[in-house]
Design a binder for these strands. Structure first.
Lengths: 203, 203
DNA sequence: ATTTACAGACCAACTGGTCGGTCTTAAACG
DNA sequence: CGTTTAAGACCGACCAGTTGGTCTGTAAAT
């Protein structure tokens, strides 16, 4: 009874994650889930509604968890910690859902896609190396995993495209400075923070 | 002479940013840039190639800047600082290009799009509030702009979908812990870091 | 007997891309 | 210096394939 619906969602997640929303047709979904056009449109008004449901699943979850975190703790630091914990863990539970949501670039044909990815990897490697060298030289805390640290920088900065506005309240300098400060405060060793050469980088 | 090409790129950026790659047809582009199908395909092999060129523009730039940063400075902390600075500033220069690259969800029809956005905003507001309260209570450094701090958390965590793998090297717990540590080290005031209630949150 | 769950042939609209042709420009020529 | 010529820039009607969605029909469940 309506088991078909779940099969459809499952297949969609699989296909969307791999080929992106626009790279997958309703026919593909129907075929992969061994059903029919009729079945699909019996359960979903449109291809868009299916996508919406995928989104809604995990967003609803994240919200509930954040609510919980805030009402459980008193201190902001504890609240924030709990929010981050649950927020991150959502990716373990709903990675396919989320990937579909933020899907992009899968519309670049393999040839072009490769070219772009190569350059992006290069950039990532450069950041990793700087972090590793910083850890070797004792400037950066060696207790932090370099890869995760690197990805947190990439994420923090890349996300800017979502909210930055040229004529908005925050200037690009202020943003750059704040990011840099948070990261450096977070990864510099206590002694490095006292280094007169590095001190000016911090607020 | 070939001025048309620039008009096409400009129009594409405008349209893609607003409606996404798949929401814009070659005809739309041609119309908006007051040219023709013929003109378009004279300058671009395909719609994909146009997208590729948009991507390549800013990625090439970022790479060059990072290279420069690394060769200019010796100390990793200074290198990292310079990379972050230029990396962030790219968004000022190439926001449309980058938006197109990371475009998604614009394929959700307005109705559904609104529903999703509402929940996401709610989540964002919760984070902002926690940060502000932390600043008021003296746990968090008040010198950091709350919005930028909030967005840096959102970016850092949301980006996880791009690299996290369930069966990868890094467990979700390790990732959550690292993120939380970097952020808290970055935003807690020195005195709050000594608070015995908060100390266990840090590495 | 009526509603729900599903099937699959069918269609209308759209989309990327093609192709023959025209206009402009500037070098080559006489 | 005027004319020919060839290449590049640009045009727009046209096409073939594809896609989301519909519609009629059937089997099962209540």
């Amino acid at each position: 009874m309506a088991e078909l619906k779940e099969r459809i969602v499952e297949s969609s997640l699989y296909l969307f994650e791999q080929y992106g929303f626009h790279g997958v047709t309703v026919n593909d979904i129907v075929q992969h889930s061994r059903t029919s056009k009729g079945g699909f449109y019996h359960h979903f008004q449109s291809k868009d509604e299916l996508l919406f449901m995928i989104h809604d699943t995990f967003i609803t979850y994240v919200l509930a968890k954040a609510d919980e975190a805030i009402s459980t703790y008193e201190k902001p630091a504890l609240q924030l910690h709990a929010i981050i914990q649950s927020f991150v863990k959502v990716f373990d539970l709903y990675k396919p859902h989320i990937s579909v949501f933020y899907q992009e670039s899968n519309y670049l044909k393999p040839h072009f896609d490769q070219l772009i990815k190569r350059k992006r990897d290069q950039f990532k490697q450069m950041i990793f190396q700087v972090i590793q060298q910083g850890q070797s030289s004792g400037e950066f805390r060696a207790s932090l995993p370099a890869e995760i640290t690197g990805m947190s920088i990439l994420g923090m900065v890349n996300w800017t495209y979502k909210w930055y506005q040229k004529d908005g309240e925050k200037t690009i300098e202020e943003i750059a400075h704040t990011f840099s400060d948070i990261i450096l405060q977070g990864i510099l060793t206590p002694s490095a923070k006292e280094n007169p050469q590095l001190k000016p980088l911090l607020l």
